[in-house]
């Protein structure tokens, strides 16, 4: 059995956690209710600020038209493809750079330049090259995520404990064995954290791409809403996007938990 002091400590801890969650919820509720009340008593102009109730009815009517899940699905689909490709290509290129230091030294300044360039600037060129379609959107997002992945994963590879590599070398391991048995598994945490960055990066890229070219997707909803000055639609799009990004982030965090089980 625990001592009274320990019980007291546990109680305090629990109380503190409860207070934090309560405060967080209160802020959200005050924000939503305040927004709704300000809109209801016409203190703010709902034409430009919309209101929670109007957002909900917009989402419901989107659902009734059968469009809601189509738009959500398109955006998720594009994001997952660019996320998957970005991660895969990023890891493969990082591997090549780790394998051959000469190539890394040659490519390094180019990577830095491409990384610092805001990829949105390439939007018009991508559209001209690949057409105003989904391909352009995915390539746009891919460009944003792949460079970051290469740099993060490569750094992860390079931070591998030299002692562990030496140990394998003392067993006369081949370079492939060193890669497979030390470099890759010890970079797991880095790769996983780059997945987390990647999923957000991909979503940013996809929305950006949808702003520029698309005829469907959440980015399109927001863009279309702003063009016809339907702020209810714009706000609904943002809310949906928020939910989608939280869910995708949570899924990646869950995968992280499964993959890194020994820590």
């Amino acid at each position: 059995m625990y001592s009274n002091e320990h019980k007291e400590y546990l109680k305090k801890r629990k109380k503190r956690k409860f207070l934090i969650i309560l405060t967080q919820l209160l802020i959200l509720i005050i924000f939503i209710v305040g927004w709704e009340l300000l809109a209801k008593y016409e203190i703010i102009n709902t034409f430009i600020s919309s209101s929670p109730s109007k957002i909900i009815s917009t989402i419901i009517s989107l659902y009734k038209q059968g469009n809601l899940f189509k738009h959500i699905w398109i955006t998720i689909y594009e994001t997952l493809i660019s996320f998957g490709l970005g991660t895969l290509i990023g890891i493969v290129i990082a591997t090549i750079l780790w394998w051959n230091n000469f190539i890394y030294k040659v490519v390094d300044p180019y990577l830095t330049v491409i990384n610092s360039l805001p990829k949105v600037a390439l939007g018009p060129i991508i559209i001209i090259f690949f057409g105003a379609n989904m391909n352009s959107i995915i390539i746009m997002a891919l460009l944003i995520s792949v460079i970051v992945t290469i740099i993060t994963v490569y750094n992860g590879f390079n931070e591998t404990d030299q002692n562990k590599i030496n140990l394998l070398k003392s067993f006369k391991a081949s370079k492939w064995q060193i890669y497979k048995m030390v470099i890759l598994p010890s970079s797991y945490p880095t790769i996983i954290s780059s997945l987390k960055i990647n999923i957000s990066m991909s979503l940013i890229g996809i929305i950006m791409g949808e702003f520029l070219v698309s005829k469907e997707g959440i980015g399109y909803l927001i863009m279309y809403g702003s063009q016809v000055f339907n702020l209810n639609l714009v706000m609904s799009g943002i809310i949906i996007l928020m939910l989608v990004s939280i869910i995708m982030y949570k899924v990646v965090s869950y995968i992280e938990k499964i993959l890194i089980k020994h820590d």
Partner: peptide, 28 residues
Amino acid sequence: KLGYMLQEDTLFPWLTILDNSLLGLKVQ
């Protein structure tokens, strides 16, 4: 054949004790 033992224990945290012990055999 030489066997090398380093300053840090360099056990791989992602492998069990058995798998760590079998590492050299696996490589060879």
